[in-house]
Design a binder for these strands. Structure first.
Ligand code: MN
Ligand code: MN
Ligand code: MN
Ligand code: MN
Lengths: 218, 218
DNA sequence: ATATATTTTTAGGTTAGTCTAAAAATTTTA
DNA sequence: TAAAATTTTTAGACTAACCTAAAAATATAT
């Protein structure tokens, strides 16, 4: 069994491994968990003892298959709880993350199974992120950052890169939701801002926004 | 804000105060929490600093009004989660307690409000225990242990005194559920066992059972 | 290639929450 | 009411999870 802190380290490493095949550096983990590198070294040694990570001094860490499974299960719980909060308890998508950070640590296999059933086996969370199955497998779909689309390309909005409350509220205000069709009408070389069409409305958005929205091209 | 451990101490004291007006002894708390008296003394000092209990050496502790409110809120969360698990997630009444012990510590006022609404503002948990309102008030009803009923008295089964999984499963097997009408047909002086009628079935139950079932006389 | 900068680890400390053993206070018994 | 038993507190230690500061290793720049 893993402590709350150990679970958070595993999850952090799991998320960091999505972008790379190399070992995850002490500093990267420290940054993600808002802690100190020395604390990370301590914890990594413990996780290594428990055989959830492989660690060689100065080389960074990698999750073992066992570690990946543990981590994926925490992510699974996190995302299922987020769906539950939005679908059943009237939370908005910018309110669920912090509560899910707590709920993901509840230990009860039956509970999460029943939540999954109750929700009708959802495949994605409210932010468009895929929900791992019980074995830890995830179904990744082909998606591109809106900022990489060319003029006249279009697709469906399927996810966010930044799921901070501020960004999500901003999207709400602009009427940008998952599932909406978006077409790039103009790209400004000057500041990389875009003019897009969504719901037959023209919208001008900055590069920062376009860099945090995922589109499934169509 | 209170730690998980502090919350468990507050809840333990809260439950122990139901049976008495006197200060709650160090040993009683240690027994309830399955810990050592010395640990209790340590924690009590901390809780006293935080003004949730009043403590004088060797005199036991009492919750302050503030402490009572905190404790009642944890009990509220515990019982609402138990209702949720039974009503919405197909848990049986003997499976919910341990999960609720974890869920009661989740910090999100909105979450518990929404669960309350989602459940239709239940007043009692699956074991017949009253759910405190947001201010910490509970609605106590007049109830008697089945063992105290006289021959030919009857009433509705409204609660259990022992909510261990073993006892609850035993009740399931015998067909004894909350809400059922129970009539005492016989009382044996010899071993204080009872013959009762429930659903037009005659049942013989030991004093130990009768001592753990609450009846609202009618 | 050597000096400089950065990253990582080690060493030593802190706090929360627990424990055992012993001392002190209170309660019970005779 | 004095001795015995019990309860409670204190003293000192331990572990998990952090921290700061310094040392060691690695990476970068000239
Ligand atoms: Mn989240
Ligand atoms: Mn999410
Ligand atoms: Mn319970
Ligand atoms: Mn209950």
């Amino acid at each position: 069994m893993f402590t709350l802190s150990e679970e958070n380290y595993l999850k952090a490493i799991y998320h960091l491994e999505i972008d790379t095949d190399k070992g995850i550096s002490t500093n990267a983990i420290a940054k993600k968990l808002i802690t100190k590198a020395s604390s990370v070294t301590d914890m990594i040694k413990k996780l290594s003892e428990k055989e959830v990570v492989v660690y060689k001094k100065y080389q960074g860490v990698k999750l073992t298959n066992f570690g990946k499974k543990i981590a994926a299960n925490i992510v699974r719980k996190h995302r299922l709880w987020e769906v539950f909060l939005v679908e059943k308890l009237n939370f908005s998508w910018d309110e669920v993350h912090d509560v899910a950070e707590q709920l993901e640590h509840i230990k009860s296999p039956k509970l999460i199974d029943q939540i999954d059933t109750f929700l009708g086996f959802p495949t994605h969370d409210p932010h468009g992120d895929p929900i791992p199955d019980k074995e830890g497998n995830i179904n990744t779909i082909e998606k591109s950052l809106l900022s990489t689309l060319l003029k006249n390309e279009s697709g469906i909005c399927v996810g966010v890169n930044d799921s901070s409350s501020e960004f999500l509220k901003f999207l709400d205000k602009k009427g940008i939701k998952l599932g909406k069709q978006i077409t790039v009408l103009e790209k400004e070389d000057f500041d990389d801002s875009l003019t897009i069409r969504i719901d037959d409305i023209k919208l001008s958005i900055s590069n920062k926004i376009a860099n945090n929205l995922y589109i499934k091209k169509s």
